[in-house]
């Protein structure tokens, strides 16, 4: 049964292999910057994630950048983190977003303030991501606020969440996914995958638990732009699992061919993911590389994107 009527939901429910992109709003008030980045993504992906103060750095509000995308004829996937707002602000923003046509939402805990540009800010975390999922579902399906009071006008939101198959303890990752499913999530976008062996195992366990029949899973892919980026991801980004073989493949080509090698690795991953039982799509996080998305989409055989009425 259709819950939000979003393009992403329609694509997934029709059984197509979904393809989503990502866009980080600017550190300023220029709508043009959003439009410029968005132009590369238009028609190449089914929906575009709009990050919410990503890595705890202040940026244009994700709902605002989401609206700019709607103006551009692109479907946003509005991200919301628990770090920056309490349950009142969250519910208010969700109602406002839904009223203005936002149909997908991704519920996240959010990086700690210590990482960002305001390290001494107070993290709110009134709810965690699982409690947020449940709250959105309750607004949508029961028409009740978190407090239990009635909502007049339910927000039609396709509810997403993240999953990191690579964070410890590995055996709990599928359990935590199960908790998100129980909370009411409709789709999952995973952390960037580099360790395919571990991801296969994660999906196998999720299949075994029957989770992949209850939730759509979009596998996260971020092409490596350089060897330096790969090394940084391997050593500096918590919860990221970059195997040595990725590093050595990038090391094995000249510096000016590293980006191409990074794209090739991503394409190989996408080809495998398309065939993987329990995977329903790919979420391409081309970080500050939006202009390469058309090429990657083309070479991955993702174009043209299906249109579901």
């Amino acid at each position: 049964m259709m819950k939000s009527g979003s393009n992403l939901e329609k694509i997934l429910r029709a059984g197509h292999f979904a393809f989503t992109g990502e866009l980080g709003p600017p550190r300023g008030a220029h709508a043009e910057e959003v439009r410029k980045k968005a132009a590369h993504l238009k028609g190449r992906v089914d929906a575009v994630n709009i990050t919410d103060n990503q890595t705890a750095v202040v940026r244009m509000a994700s709902w605002a950048a989401s609206l700019i995308l709607i103006q551009e004829g692109i479907e946003p996937n509005y991200q919301m983190v628990c770090r920056d707002r309490n349950r009142l602000a969250m519910q208010a923003d969700i109602l406002g977003a839904a009223a203005l046509g936002i149909r997908n939402m991704l519920c996240l805990s959010g990086d700690h303030c210590l990482f960002g540009d305001h390290p001494t800010a107070k993290g709110v975390f009134d709810l965690d991501s699982i409690q947020l999922i449940r709250m959105v579902k309750q607004l949508r399906d029961e028409g009740k606020f978190q407090s239990g009071a009635d909502v007049d006008g339910r927000p039609a939101i396709f509810i997403g969440a993240a999953s990191n198959p690579f964070a410890d303890p590995f055996e709990w990752r599928v359990q935590r996914l199960a908790k998100k499913v129980e909370a009411g999530v409709d789709f999952i976008q995973t952390q960037c995958i580099y360790n395919m062996a571990k991801f296969r195992e994660f999906i196998r366990l999720a299949n075994e638990e029957g989770l992949t029949e209850k939730v759509f899973i979009l596998a996260g892919i971020t092409p490596m732009k350089s060897l330096g980026m790969a090394k940084y991801m391997k050593t500096k980004v918590p919860g990221m699992d970059v195997p040595d073989e990725i590093i050595s493949r990038l090391q094995g080509v000249p510096r000016d061919k590293q980006a191409e090698e990074g794209i090739r690795i991503a394409l190989e991953q996408i080809a495998e993911l398309k065939e993987m039982k329990g995977v329903h799509g790919v979420h391409l996080m081309a970080i500050e590389w939006e202009h390469r998305v058309p090429e990657i989409a083309e070479r991955a055989g993702m174009l043209p994107r299906p249109v579901v009425g």
Binding site: H112, F125, D128, A162, N164, G239
Partner: peptide, 20 residues
């Protein structure tokens, strides 16, 4: 938990350490 999560661990847990 640096985020005070009631349903952890978050995706930032790093070989048993906190992301912070």
């Amino acid at each position: 938990c640096a985020k005070g999560l009631y349903n952890g661990p978050c995706g930032g847990t790093n070989r048993g350490s906190c992301e912070i």
